[in-house]
């Protein structure tokens, strides 16, 4: 299991996974994210402020969540990505696809724009 909190701010869903998204926690992250995106707003911010670690299994969940949001007419972007985690996004070429913002507020503003 991964601990994840979330918040709905206007028409934007903010997901806040905790600490470590590795291949043993990615599945529960995916299930919770799917459920929240299906039930709630389709504009999604994943706030990585509390995330210290991500593997390719975690990246896969970010990708599938983004596709799910997009196919429902929404979009996904990221905030609060620490330098170690950002490096993983950079190696994968994901940083450019999703866009990265310092704070969830900036990410929410980007989705509204």
């Amino acid at each position: 299991m991964i601990e994840m909190s979330h918040e709905i701010r206007g028409d934007v869903l903010i997901l806040r996974p905790a600490k470590r998204i590795d291949s043993s926690t990615a599945k529960s992250f995916e299930e919770q994210a799917n459920e929240l995106v299906d039930a709630g707003p389709k504009k999604v911010v994943i706030d990585f402020s509390a995330v210290e670690y991500i593997s390719s299994a975690g990246l896969r969940v970010v990708l599938t969540t983004a596709k799910r949001a997009k196919s429902a007419g929404g979009a996904l972007t990221l905030s609060g990505v620490s330098s170690n985690v950002k490096e993983v996004f950079d190696v994968s070429g994901f940083a450019a696809i999703f866009g990265m913002h310092d704070t969830p507020e900036e990410a929410v503003a980007a989705l509204k724009g």
Binding site: A57, V91, S92
Partner: peptide, 11 residues
């Protein structure tokens, strides 16, 4: 891009 992006081999 988002649609074509693959994960296989990334690990």
């Amino acid at each position: 891009g988002l649609e074509e992006r693959r994960i296989g081999g990334l690990g």
